[in-house]
Amino acid sequence: MNFRKILALITIILLGIFILQAFLIIPEKGEIALNNFGKADIENRTAQLYIDKSVNSTNEQVIYKESKDKESGSANIVTSIVANYRALDTLGEVTVLFLAATGLSAILYNKKHAKSNFILKEDSFILKNGIKILFPLLILAGSYIIIYGHLSPGGSFQGGAVIATAFLLKLLSSKEYELDENILKIIEVTAGVSFVSIGLYGLYAEGSFLTNFLETGTIANLFSGGIVPIIYITIGLKVAVELTNIINDLMKA
């Protein structure tokens, strides 16, 4: 423990004290914030409008398999936020992910075509054969998570991560396994362009970017939610491909 570390520790403890102090004070209400844990006042938050699916329409009960033509037809409310109410944020996020993947490729470019130097002593039998079984299952699971993103927990990011994991395992299992980067690129570009085109069509049809222009259908049906599932599938493909790309780049580096 030298002087530098002690100084850093003291400063950080002071900072911690001040941050925690912030939790103990809410001046306008006269109560400490700590006691508000678990008492999030959803009723008065914007979230309630999203839950009721009534930002622009009247407040009605939303009932499973019964309510029709609501504002946003997806049963998973987080999904309806990510892919509908705040889809523009998601577009930005996907762009960040894309930039990171591109930046990584650019940084590691000169080693791109070298063989993987990830040290594997020899191809493990269990890994190799286990993955042969697991790989299609993982792809299937990932696809399910993406496609059912608007009905059940999960969504495109999670599903994309699962698909990327499948490829990670495949890369780990065999030194010879090579991903075709052109196909990856085509999928990624198609997905990204579709996302933006859907948004632009919303601009053309409804007057604002990424607006829902399809029928929202009945809550909790597979074919419901308007553009939400379509956008979610494009995002899922994009995330899956980008994460795979990142893994591929890092393993080849």
Binding site: A40, I42, R45, T46, A47, Y50, I51, D52, K53, Q61, V62, I63, Y64, K65, A75, N76, I77, V78, I81, V82, R86, D89, T90, E93, V96, L97, L151, S152, P153, G155, F157, I219, A220, V239
Partner: peptide, 29 residues
């Protein structure tokens, strides 16, 4: 906050979905 066969928007307490959506973004970034 997912509407299922036994749960609709009035019958149960949902947690706030907005922080969840934001954190989803945050994790990926």
């Amino acid at each position: 906050p997912i509407i299922t066969s036994t749960i609709n928007n009035n019958s149960y307490n949902f947690v706030d979905p907005i922080p969840q959506a934001l954190v989803l973004t945050s994790i990926v970034i």
